[in-house]
Design a protein around this nucleic acid. Structure first.
Lengths: 347, 347
DNA sequence: TTGAAAGCGCTAACAG
DNA sequence: CTGTTAGCGCTTTCAA
């Protein structure tokens, strides 16, 4: 029997820049310059070195690069990778980075500030060239502190910080679109399901969507018909919201769930109780996640163009890395996607 | 106005092991040993150094560690992060790594062998200590080659390789469970939607599930009633499968979609045609993704216990890194989850 | 334009 | 048990 061992086997050594330099008959410094597209190399030098790199199949060792210069790696923190919206953002980022030979590495940070901070530290320890944090729950001061250590872009959270960039949807506007849609259908008494915050941070999407909802209702003379249901933006939170809505003295004709996942929880709970949507009440989500378009779901929701957000975030981060110092905060226009969970009220 | 500049500002230098050693009044070698929990350090030394590390808030620089030894980082490649099943696997892996101070970094590799290979190379270039590839489309030879470079575990794909470990669900058994369920309900003529492979690789889940389906049908005397529908495991593939099923001469009473996402595509298409499930035909998926449990969907499917897969993969990889040389291939038992998309045939 | 040499933060071999 | 020192692969002065 042939022995095929891994640990015992002598793994062939990596091709290093020294090998390339020797093969091309030049100094490592010159090879390095070619690798980095740096100034001060003749055309012939560039060609020779490039040929050697190709011939030897040279791939730069990232940790070694990181010791002195850049790693050409960008870190992305998300709470949980299982979020279709994050996936779109990641695709958008990748599409920008790819053209510039940067690489994207993703790390799930959970839903607690403590665990997210730990993940951010770890990404910094990897000597990444920049970080993109998606909907971080970390406090604003912490974000500024991080931004002073490393180029930083946050996605999905409004910001006015001077030291970092941000890309987010115009959540206030998004809520307004929803209210317009529902009022247009004839609804008056509308509920909004919140994502409970122990310590309210005004720059978080949940705050902006709630504010937008209240403002839009008020400006249409429906301030007294705006009902806030304090729950959580999760499947479970949606399920629980159903009972809360039922316990209201005056019933609702429409519920704006604040997020698709919450709307799905509500749908699921209602379905189990054999109550139909939109017959029971109209239902609106937020995010336009892929599930929402599936036939039997057909959730009316708000699209945030995640891919474009990712592209923008990637572009901003590269600009930061190249040295831009003034902050840039981009707000993207949301769009309402009307499907089958909204209809005129029954009465 | 106060100037708050990032790039211009002098960023404070990192705390290095030299700082720790100085603070504790010992050599860097000793500090390093404490950091690595290496042998040959007195209790008092350990305490002093540890105290200094805590006092200075020392965090080891991963690239530097990677230059000589381990980075304590594991890379995970997935085709696309937007897959609830992958999320479960990642959680499982993380739960194991966390106890051992390893970190998990995830990289989306797309659906092509070429792009996946590029991502794997990039992870190797980062000097990661080991890799976990989820359902790679890369050829078996390539996997062996990779495994000779770096400790490797593949998830969701059967393997008999001597140089790498694998964890997967028993897909043949899973298909058998589905056939049993459907036949138990009274179905005879059953369709199976495949994920088309240009070059059939027998160790891929799509091959195993198809084989299991055909075998189970045959062993129940239904070989002639087993219909194979060649499509793709995607939302679109599911949608297209509907027309293919409709064009069959003898109609089906049940469709085993091979994967949840395919089943969702079928559901969606049928729904748009105002045809009900399971009235049109019973429908079964595979994966038990989170969506499948949502009320209005209620998809009958097969659970693969992704979290456990992740745990196992993490454990196997750490063992490899510690030096295990004989391959380990784990097969996990799948379970049928019956919901509302399956029922006895109408006739 | 090119090359020699120092050094990034850490580990490992070896000496004391 | 502890310290000295070389060196990982690369970038970056600085000199030629």
């Amino acid at each position: 029997m042939q022995e095929v061992r891994t640990a015992g086997e002598v793994r062939q050594k990596r091709v290093t820049i020294v090998d390339v330099a020797q093969h091309a008959g030049v100094s490592t410094a010159s090879a390095s310059k070619v690798l980095r597209n740096a100034y001060g190399v003749s055309e012939s030098m560039r060609e020779r070195v490039q040929a050697s790199m190709d011939a030897l199949g040279y791939r730069p060792h990232r940790p070694a690069r990181g010791m002195r210069g850049r790693t050409f790696t960008i870190g992305m923190m998300v709470s949980d990778i299982d979020n279709p919206f994050f996936s779109l953002i990641a695709d958008g980022i990748s599409s920008v980075l790819r053209q510039r030979d940067y690489e994207l590495l993703i790390s799930p940070g959970g839903y607690e500030a403590a665990s997210q901070n730990a993940v951010v530290d770890a990404l910094i320890d990897h000597q990444m060239d920049g970080l993109i944090l998606v909907a971080p729950v970390v406090g604003g001061d912490d974000l500024d502190r991080i931004a002073r250590e490393i180029p930083l872009v946050i996605v999905g959270r409004h910001s006015h910080s001077e030291v970092l960039d941000s890309v987010s949807g115009d959540d206030e506007r998004g809520s307004e679109l929803v209210v317009d849609h529902l009022v247009g259908l004839g609804h008056g008494r509308i509920g909004f399901v919140t994502n409970h915050q122990d310590r309210v941070e005004p720059d978080r999407p949940e705050s902006a969507r709630l504010a937008g909802f209240l403002k839009a209702m008020a400006s249409r003379g429906l301030a007294d018909d705006a009902v806030v249901i304090d729950s959580r933006w999760s499947l479970e939170g949606g399920r629980n919201a159903v009972a809360m809505v039922d316990s209201l003295e005056t019933p609702l004709t429409a519920v704006f769930a604040g997020a698709d996942v919450t709307a799905l929880g509500i749908m699921s709970e209602l379905w189990e109780q054999r109550r139909a949507v939109p017959a029971t009440y109209s239902l609106v989500g937020y995010d336009n996640s892929r599930i929402s378009s599936i036939g039997p779901i057909g959730l009316t929701t708000v699209d945030q163009s995640g891919f474009e957000m990712g592209e923008t975030a990637g572009r901003l981060l590269l600009e930061r890395i190249e040295g831009r110092v003034d902050a840039s905060h981009v707000l993207l226009r949301p769009q309402l996607v009307a499907r089958t969970t909204t209809a005129p009220p029954e009465r």
